[in-house]
Design a protein around this nucleic acid. Structure first.
Length: 794
DNA sequence: CATAACGTAGTT
DNA sequence: AACTACGTTATG
């Protein structure tokens, strides 16, 4: 640590001056002099406040702020994808960085509940009062300059101007500091305590905001700490409290002036940060409506509730806050639990709307581990699935029905209604409405499919998990990279790329430590980062191409259900035996009803119910997976299609598959299609062309109906590509390069090398190979990249 | 300047 | 006590 005497001196000087004016302010801590340049003044002052525990007790010791727990960031779940998430142990990282998820950076960090007024030693007391100004005087305010936390009321210097910082709750420049003339400078150089939350971190939502606001007047000066504060028309004092549920001042259209030139920069940066999925102002921290609802998140109503409150009356939030304050800790708990209760209520409401899930949940709770053992799918299914030879070159000779949206991209762009909300052909809502409302309104429906998919995921995972165990063979293969992936995955065995030749079943690398579940699990978990890095980007990026469209396309899954997505999923081998015809009973005998009878019963159940049944026992599990029960799989609007879901689909071999308005990626779709040889109806409306283009390289011989309504970017050339015979996409060959030719040199007896479909092998390399081999074995190029030995030597 | 790492405050 | 993660420091 480099210390500069001169800097010290400077600091000392200024601080001395301060001290003279501000008797209350604790002497700057010596370590603060780390600041060596004027530019570092900021850190100097903050460091001063924070770093020395010895000074914590003193009034000026800065309090670390903590989450508000209310803002959008606070209520969401960890993305699992950002730097910090990846660092976390729970995501398989080393846990060194100890930072919160980028997406979870609180936008309005609050003072800890242990904070007390430096003068009277009490917590905030604003809840005891009604009058706005009174409230203000009774709440704790932390000075961003001297770090003192006081009740404005407790200050003796009442006539001095206090400057409230709108950026942070309970933050101001106290009258003393302000009076001392530090306002302007401090304002520019110092963001105030807690600002780091939003500004300092990589990917911070407010990072550029900081720059943008540096010059803008983010604080409001008050001549008399009380009066002026309440007078501030643009950023009323209480706005501070509103932050959690409001646009930050900078972003607010009615916000304080800011240098225009910085806005684009800010947005640009943001856009970059949110590149993955969101639209321009989406990046603005607080635009909720567009934010996709995530199944794993508490449902929006809580937020919306808060928002409503805030819209109705600013003081409501204040009151909420007050509740937290007195008595500080307990009331906070209460407050928090209230929030939780609300969530639970909502959850209940949801579950009422969705009874099967409720019952499932209950049911699951009763389940014992032994029930988790499940079985492989039926042999006969597998046989039918095994379509190795069937697959023709033709993409879809049987295709009879393609539904297209007649609207151009442009028209769609101009019509925000043209998005998913219109649900393909079944357009309903026409009148523009508040997005948030629409969003909310859609929740139930969406939730159904989401829940279904979750259910599916869960069931699949359990099944596969146990199967992997049962078979003493960790069979794994990832849909995401079985085809066009990087060669990195040495684990994948060669057969994995047979263009889906194995039907729905593939053997993964068998040599990976058979049967070691913990090992496998660990690997699965540890693979997360890799998985996310390599699997999700392709899913996200293509969909992100048409950013300008206001279409409310389901956003790419920035944080799909983690537990699900994390794990490598397993593709099971063909089952060893056909499913039993009778249900074995506890007493060793078999149930009287044959499988077919059961299937008849099962056929009356919904998919959701089937999922429940699948968890009853292994026999039911196998029976319920009978593809006759799953001829139509509807995953419409499932925002995130996970690998597990893909394998679940394959296991069930549907005839009709609805993937409309999902964010399925090209890779996923490609993987899927190649493994659904019996698919006849495929609904892809609302998907991106990038994803749909998977069909160009996949064969789906029986496909008869293809719904491409609202496929973004689908134009004539795309249609041409789609309907042209597929380019060869046999995956194991896609990655064979020129280099591989050299390996053939070892094969003295090889007679014919057909590399025609190896895109990465060049004719030149073949010629070179022939030249080099000519001495040993004479080859000729029979055709482009088809090498034939000239004289067959016995 | 960006970001990794760290000590430890704050919360559960 | 365990956990999260803030705000700083170290490093490249």
């Amino acid at each position: 640590m480099a210390m500069s005497l001169s800097a010290d001196d400077e600091d000392y000087d200024s601080d001395t001056a301060e001290q003279q004016r501000l008797p209350n302010r604790p002497k700057p801590k010596m370590a603060a002099s780390t600041a060596t340049t004027p530019a570092a003044t900021t850190s100097s002052s903050t460091a001063t406040a924070v770093k020395l525990p010895s000074n914590r007790t003193s009034s000026g010791a800065r309090r670390r702020r903590t989450r508000c727990r209310k803002c959008e960031a606070c209520v969401r779940t960890e993305c699992g994808e950002c730097h910090f998430c990846k660092d976390m142990k729970k995501f398989g990282g080393p846990g060194r960085m100890k930072q919160s998820c980028i997406m979870r950076q609180c936008i309005a960090p609050v003072l800890p509940h242990t904070a007390v007024c430096v003068v009277c030693g009490e917590a905030g007391k604003e809840d005891t009062l009604d009058d706005e100004d009174e409230k203000f005087n009774a709440m704790l305010m932390e000075c961003s300059i001297c770090n003192e936390i006081v009740h404005p009321n407790c200050l003796k210097v009442k006539d001095a101007a206090g400057v409230v910082n709108d950026e942070l709750p309970n933050c101001w420049e106290c009258p003393k500091c302000n009076y001392a003339g530090k306002t302007g400078k401090a304002c520019k150089q110092k963001r105030g305590p807690g600002f780091k939350y939003a500004s300092n971190l990589p990917g911070s939502l407010l990072r550029e905001q900081k720059a943008g606001r540096e010059e803008g007047d983010q604080t409001s000066t008050c001549a008399s700490s009380m009066k002026r504060k309440s007078e501030r028309e643009e950023t009323p004092r209480l706005k501070t409290e509103d932050l959690p549920s409001r646009l930050p001042p900078l972003l607010s259209p009615s916000g304080l002036p800011r240098p225009r030139s910085e806005v684009p920069n800010f947005l640009r940066k943001k856009r970059k940060l949110f590149d993955d999925d969101e639209e321009e102002d989406e990046a603005s921290a607080k635009k909720k409506p567009k934010k996709p609802w995530r199944p794993e998140e508490p449902l929006i109503p809580k937020l919306s509730h808060m928002k409503t409150e805030e819209e109705e009356d600013n003081s409501d939030e204040e009151e909420e806050r007050q509740e937290k304050r007195e008595p500080p800790r307990r009331s906070f708990k209460k407050d928090y639990s209230t929030v939780r209760k609300e969530e639970e209520h909502e959850k209940e409401r949801r579950e009422e709307r969705d009874p099967p899930f409720r019952s499932l949940k209950d049911f699951n709770n009763l389940r014992k581990e032994e029930d988790q053992e499940e079985e492989k799918e039926d042999d006969d299914e597998e046989e039918e699935e095994d379509n190795n030879g069937k697959r023709g070159r033709d993409s879809s000779p049987a295709l009879k029905n393609i539904s297209l949206s007649l609207e151009s991209d442009a028209s769609r762009c101009s019509s925000p209604r043209a998005g998913p909300s219109s649900e393909g052909s079944e357009t309903q809502e026409k009148a523009p409405r508040a997005r948030a409302k629409r969003h909310r309104r859609k929740l139930p429906n969406r939730q159904l499919s989401t829940e279904l998919s979750k259910q599916l995921n869960m069931e699949i995972r359990r099944t596969e998990h146990s199967l992997a165990n049962e078979n003493q063979q960790p069979l794994k293969s990832e849909p995401e990279d079985s085809e066009n992936e990087e060669p990195k995955r040495g684990l994948r065995n060669g057969t994995a790329g047979n263009g889906g030749g194995g039907g729905g079943v593939e053997r993964g690398a068998g040599g990976e430590g058979g049967g070691e579940r913990p090992h496998l699990r660990a690997r699965e978990m540890n693979g997360t980062s890799w998985e996310l890095r390599h699997f999700y980007p392709p899913q996200i990026t293509p969909l992100g191409l048409n950013r300008s469209s206001p279409t409310i396309r389901p956003l790419p899954a920035r944080s799909p259900p983690k537990c699900v997505q994390m794990e490598r999923h397993v593709i099971r081998p063909p089952p060893i035996c056909p499913p039993p015809d009778r249900l074995p009973l506890a007493d060793g005998r078999n149930h009287i009803a044959p499988r077919e009878a059961w299937l008849t019963i099962f056929s009356h159940l919904s998919h959701r119910e089937l999922c429940v049944c699948m968890r009853v026992c292994r026999t039911w599990n196998r029976w319920c997976c009978d593809k006759r029960l799953w001829t139509h799989i509807d995953l419409k609007r499932c925002k995130s299609i996970t690998p597990l879901m893909l394998s679940g689909i394959i296991r069930r071999q549907p005839i009709t598959l609805d993937l409309s308005w999902t964010n399925i990626s090209k890779k996923q779709l490609s993987w899927l299609i190649n493994r659904l040889p019996g698919l006849r109806v495929l609904l892809l409306s609302g998907c991106s062309w990038v994803a749909v283009s998977a069909l160009c390289t996949s064969s789906c011989p029986l496909l008869r109906t293809l719904d491409l309504q609202w496929v973004e970017g689908l134009k004539d050339p795309q249609m041409r590509d789609l309907l042209s015979p597929p380019t060869d996409n046999r995956p194991v060959c896609n990655r064979v390069t020129d280099q591989s030719l050299s390996y053939f040199k070892r094969c003295g007896s090889i007679c014919r090398i057909d590399l025609r479909f190896c895109k990465q092998v060049s004719r030149q390399a073949c010629e070179r190979f022939i030249a080099e081999m000519s001495v040993i074995v004479p080859f000729q190029l029979q055709e482009d990249k088809l090498l034939q030995k000239l004289h067959s030597t016995p």
